[in-house]
């Protein structure tokens, strides 16, 4: 990803989602009321988190092929993904408090996120406990691939096997109407794409910074 166009595109898309997300028309639904607009700000965190973890997976596979610097990239993308996941979790908890009445409920999607964060925390711990760079690249790469597969199983497959409180699952009023709502869709997709670009940008900045720092210490 060369050039500056995507670094401009990301913030522009998010600005669009902020202004149209607040102003644009949304379906009138009970319980959700105006909080349906959270869709534009909370859900893109999850989508962009998964995108970051996917990038991390790709670089981990490259790291197993002994590609120079791939391990660092995998790590930084996982970090950005973790940041986005934390933001998504916190915003989700605030929303859940006012919609479901509690900050934390035992919902498959919430559990999935918590587990994802624990898996990636373990990945960070593993990476920090190995000194030698080549060995670290291999161990962390192996673990990251495993982690990604388990994350996809946990957030993608298991929730479909059980009921979820989340809007759109099992008789809950909510977002499954948004699939039909043509007003919401473009804003939502713009927000997702915008946050993915921002995530790429932050990761890229951190990777460049780390490379500079490493070059200096050598």
């Amino acid at each position: 990803m060369k050039g500056i166009w995507w670094k401009l595109l990301g913030p522009l898309l998010i600005l669009y989602s902020i202004s149209m997300g607040l102003y644009g028309p949304v379906p009138r639904l009970p319980i959700l009321n105006e909080t349906i607009r959270v869709l534009y700000y909370h859900v893109p965190m999850w989508f962009s988190m998964i995108a970051m973890m996917l990038a991390s997976l790709i670089f981990s596979i490259q790291a197993l092929g002994e590609k120079e610097g791939a391990d660092l990239k995998a790590f930084e993308f996982a970090r950005t993904g973790f940041l986005l996941a934390s933001l998504g979790l916190i915003t989700g908890m605030v929303w859940a408090r006012f919609t479901w009445g509690a900050f934390w409920v035992n919902d498959p999607k919430l559990n999935g996120t918590a587990v994802t964060m624990l898996i990636y925390l373990a990945y960070f711990v593993l990476r920090s406990s190995v000194e030698e760079a080549q060995k670290r690249a291999r161990l962390a790469g192996v673990y990251n691939i495993f982690a990604f597969v388990m994350m996809i199983v946990f957030i993608g497959i298991l929730p479909r096997m059980t009921d979820s409180l989340h809007p759109g699952n099992g008789g809950n009023p909510g977002f499954n109407q948004y699939d039909l709502d043509s007003n919401m869709r473009p804003i939502f997709y713009a927000a997702v794409l915008g946050w993915i670009l921002i995530g790429l940008w932050i990761s890229q900045l951190r990777i460049r910074y780390k490379k500079l720092r490493d070059a200096k210490t050598i």
Binding site: V115, V125, L126, S129, M150
Partner: peptide
């Protein structure tokens, strides 16, 4: 990865959740 006695539990339990 070396001698961190907590490592096996930290690494494996999240993977076993599903």
């Amino acid at each position: 990865a070396g001698a961190n006695p907590a490592l096996p539990a930290i690494l494996s339990i999240p993977l076993l959740y599903p």
